[in-house]
């Protein structure tokens, strides 16, 4: 067994006949932050969603190739997608808490796993909120609607909700794109803390964010993986001309 948590081999994805991802191969290390950058429509979000099989929900999508998580091909036909998603959590671009209380949002995951004992739930809720660095802000408002919180807080509630299921990998699809700079900074700080325990994969169109938060960076363009390397190398000494052009803002 090697250190890579996620290994992707020759992954292609089609929407109908339209090829959206072309033969992507990459390895993602454990307990690191990996960032996907690229202009919009380049396939980075689509690729992210293949890692927990979220694209299954969309009609007309066909996927070829393999994605190994802990050396198990998640596109094998015997895979249990429901359990896969418990292991691979996801944070969405637009924060999407349920129209329930903060507590019920966090307890959603444990509850669907059959945990109903109040003391256990309380513990998980508190721990998850603390991990997401929002406990102090909401501990007095646990039973208020999550929708009454600010956008940045809602996004951290979503992160906490995802942590409550105890995932190993967290996929973040532009988690801060709809937030103000202060909330964004909080999320980035949180990512930095979370990588001690989790493997984090983040899609962002904000290059500074990728540079600040990630250990590795991959650049996508028109469904191709252009280059992937340690973040400081990508941003200082990229191997490909295209990468350099994108980093310096010449396209995209």
């Amino acid at each position: 067994m090697d250190d890579y948590k996620v290994k992707v081999k020759d992954l292609s994805l089609r929407y109908g006949t339209n090829l959206a991802l072309k033969n992507i191969s990459m390895d993602i290390p454990e307990k690191k932050v990996t960032a996907f950058i690229g202009p919009s429509g380049c396939g980075k979000s689509t690729f992210l969603r293949t890692l927990n099989r979220m694209n299954d929900l969309i009609d007309n999508v066909t996927i070829e190739g393999e994605v190994y998580i802990d050396n198990i091909n998640i596109y094998d036909k015997n895979i249990d997608v429901v359990n896969l998603r418990k292991k691979v959590g996801m944070i969405f671009q637009k924060s999407n808490p349920f129209a329930k209380s903060v507590y019920d949002n966090i307890a959603f995951g444990p509850r669907i796993n059959g945990i109903s004992q109040k003391s256990v739930l309380d513990e998980i809720v508190e721990r998850s909120l603390k991990q997401a660095a929002i406990w102090d802000e909401v501990k007095d408002r646990l039973f208020h609607s999550a929708l009454s919180l600010s956008g940045g807080q809602q996004q951290r509630i979503c992160i906490a909700r995802s942590l409550a299921v105890n995932p190993e990998i967290i996929l973040m699809d532009e988690p801060a794109s709809a937030l103000d700079p202060i909330s964004t900074a909080k999320i980035e700080e949180l990512i930095h803390e979370l990588k001690k325990e989790y493997t984090i994969i983040i899609v962002t169109h904000n290059m500074q964010q990728a540079a600040r938060t990630s250990d590795l960076t991959a650049l996508f363009y028109l469904g191709d993986l252009i280059e992937m390397n340690r973040t400081e190398i990508i941003f200082s000494n990229p191997a490909k001309k295209q990468t350099e052009d994108y980093i310096s803002g010449r396209f995209g």
Binding site: N78, I79, V81, E193
Partner: peptide, 24 residues
Amino acid sequence: KVPGRIKNKNKETLQQMASFNKKK
């Protein structure tokens, strides 16, 4: 200070459930 991940028994039950290599 970020607390650690869920430890002990809860962790085990959660992780057991999350083995995805066989269709449940």
